[in-house]
Amino acid sequence: MNPVVLCTVARMMAPVLLLFSLVLTVRGHDSPGGGFVGGLLATAAFTLLLVAQPEELVRRRPRVDPTRLAITGLLVALGSGLPALFLGRPFLTGLWAQVPLPGGGALKLGTPQLFDAGVYLLVLGTAMAFILGLLHGEEEEAREREG
């Protein structure tokens, strides 16, 4: 296998995959898709980059701690259920609003989309934590101990 080919393809494909993961997440409310699949696809994009790039590059790249990303996602998902509670309705009840757009049409915004975003981050963070742990577990551990 030629790493140059892999590297080039990965660099081209990763943004496309990331974009598609967002598309999947957004359309997920009414059609197949959603935060879970979107998060997995985003993980695939990042994993492709990780595998393709030379190791020094990966190590140098500034990173978000995937565990924290996952926990933020969890809090976002839990938080998306709260507005309904404040209105005296059951937790996680979907609340929707129509935002009129210039030039006709309207944008449908609601708490389930927030929930999907939370799930997206949660899945991405959890899966990345697993993969990074498997790729260089010992390195991570050392970093944890120092921090």
Partner: peptide, 15 residues
Amino acid sequence: TPPLLLTLPLLVCLG
């Protein structure tokens, strides 16, 4: 309200 009372134990712990 009942929705709040029943959900809060789980929300408190997990949150």
